[in-house]
């Protein structure tokens, strides 16, 4: 079947991608996962209710399952793959490693992206700041370690490095 496609250009983790979309309402999440094969950002609910799909658009935390991809044109999209690397981890990732936060791990990229965005705005968040801003859902129950990790990341230095180029 012939489908009218729309070309969009997205900048993900510093690299430009041209995508031909059949449906212009396609959420950013699915463009990343199904068109670009960038799998670190997860699907949880499709209704922006759980935060598993959280990433950054121009440094703001965005729940990408309900965010039309075309709205991200001309902006900097950062996913967990671009937050930091194994060689140069983001402070949030350093803290997550130190506190051994993940269990199943599925919701963790969304939490780390939400935490990194919080630290960008509030470098030394209080418990109340964390409660108010980190509203994602984790079924394994890693909240206790996450809170410790966010405070630890703040101590390491919560400012984000410039998005790194995507490594092949």
């Amino acid at each position: 079947m012939n489908v009218q496609k729309q070309q969009i250009t997205l900048t993900v983790n510093g690299a430009d991608h041209q995508i031909a979309l059949e449906d212009t309402n396609t959420p950013l999440l699915w463009v990343l996962r199904d068109y670009l094969g960038i799998m670190g950002t997860k699907f949880g609910c499709g209704k922006a209710a759980c935060g598993a799909c959280t990433l950054h658009v121009d440094k703001e935390a965005v729940r990408s399952c309900t965010y039309p991809a075309r709205l991200a044109e001309g902006k900097q999209i950062t996913t967990i793959e671009g937050l930091g690397s194994r060689e140069e981890p983001h402070p949030v990732q350093r803290a997550w490693m130190a506190e051994v936060v993940p269990q199943c791990g599925y919701c963790q990229p969304g939490f780390m992206m939400a935490a990194a965005a919080l630290l960008e705005k509030v470098p030394e968040p209080t418990d109340a700041d964390i409660d108010q801003n980190i509203t994602n859902i984790c079924r394994c129950g890693t909240y206790y370690r996450m809170r410790k990790a966010i405070h630890r990341a703040a101590a390491i230095g919560g400012t984000r490095e410039e998005p790194l180029a995507e490594t092949p």
């Binding site: 799998m39 194994r86 981890p89 990732q93 490693m97 051994v100 791990g105 780390m112």
Partner: peptide, 19 residues
């Protein structure tokens, strides 16, 4: 001992069924 899947899960490299 730190979990042996820790780095993969922190850097977004762990592959789940849906991935």
């Amino acid at each position: 001992v730190p979990r042996n899947d820790l780095a993969d899960k922190v850097f977004g490299a762990a592959i789940f069924g849906m991935d």
